[in-house]
Lab assay of single mutants.
Amino acid sequence: HFTSQQLQELEATFQRNRYPDMSTREEIAVWTNLTEARVRVWFKNRRAKWR
């Protein structure tokens, strides 16, 4: 589960860029205190939901 702060950060990034690269995902991981893998999976799932 994600905190509302984490989701806000993830959503804001998603609005700007639906396909963040590795370095962007790592930055998000640092800001949100999540692993890069969790961030990558979140984006994958979010893109699926967005379609």
Results as ranks from 00 to 15, higher is better:
His1Ser: 12
Phe2Ala: 03
Thr3Lys: 04
Thr3Gly: 03
Thr3Met: 04
Ser4His: 14
Ser4Val: 13
Ser4Phe: 13
Gln5Pro: 05
Gln5Asn: 09
Gln6Cys: 04
Gln6Arg: 03
Leu7Met: 08
Leu7Cys: 08
Gln8Ile: 12
Gln8Asn: 10
Gln8His: 11
Gln8Asp: 10
Gln8Lys: 14
Glu9Lys: 15
Glu9Met: 15
Glu9Pro: 01
Leu10Asn: 00
Leu10Val: 00
Leu10Lys: 00
Leu10Met: 06
Leu10His: 01
Glu11Pro: 00
Glu11Leu: 05
Glu11Asp: 03
Ala12Glu: 11
Ala12Ile: 11
Ala12Gln: 10
Thr13Ile: 15
Thr13Val: 15
Phe14Val: 03
Phe14Asn: 05
Phe14Glu: 02
Phe14Trp: 05
Gln15Ser: 10
Gln15Glu: 09
Gln15Trp: 08
Arg16Cys: 09
Arg16Glu: 10
Arg16Ser: 11
Arg16Gln: 13
Asn17His: 06
Arg18Gly: 04
Arg18Thr: 05
Arg18Ile: 06
Tyr19Gln: 05
Pro20Cys: 05
Pro20Gln: 02
Asp21Ser: 10
Asp21Pro: 06
Met22Glu: 08
Thr24Ser: 07
Thr24Phe: 08
Thr24Pro: 01
Thr24Met: 12
Thr24Tyr: 07
Thr24Arg: 08
Arg25Gln: 02
Arg25Pro: 01
Glu26Gly: 06
Glu27Ala: 12
Glu27Asn: 09
Glu27Pro: 00
Ile28Cys: 03
Ile28His: 00
Ile28Ala: 01
Ile28Lys: 01
Ile28Pro: 00
Ala29Gly: 06
Ala29His: 02
Val30Asn: 12
Trp31Leu: 15
Trp31Cys: 11
Trp31Ala: 15
Thr32Ala: 08
Thr32Asn: 08
Thr32Ser: 07
Thr32Tyr: 07
Thr32Leu: 15
Thr32Asp: 01
Asn33Ser: 08
Asn33Trp: 05
Leu34Arg: 02
Leu34Tyr: 01
Leu34Asp: 03
Thr35Glu: 06
Thr35Gln: 04
Thr35Asp: 08
Thr35Gly: 03
Ala37Thr: 10
Ala37Asn: 09
Ala37Met: 14
Arg38Asp: 14
Arg38His: 11
Arg40Pro: 00
Arg40Ser: 07
Val41Met: 14
Trp42Tyr: 02
Trp42His: 00
Trp42Gln: 03
Phe43Lys: 02
Lys44Ser: 09
Lys44Asn: 07
Lys44Cys: 07
Asn45Ala: 14
Asn45Thr: 09
Asn45His: 13
Arg47Pro: 00
Arg47Thr: 03
Arg47Asn: 06
Ala48Met: 07
Ala48Leu: 08
Lys49Ile: 15
Lys49Trp: 11
Arg51Tyr: 14
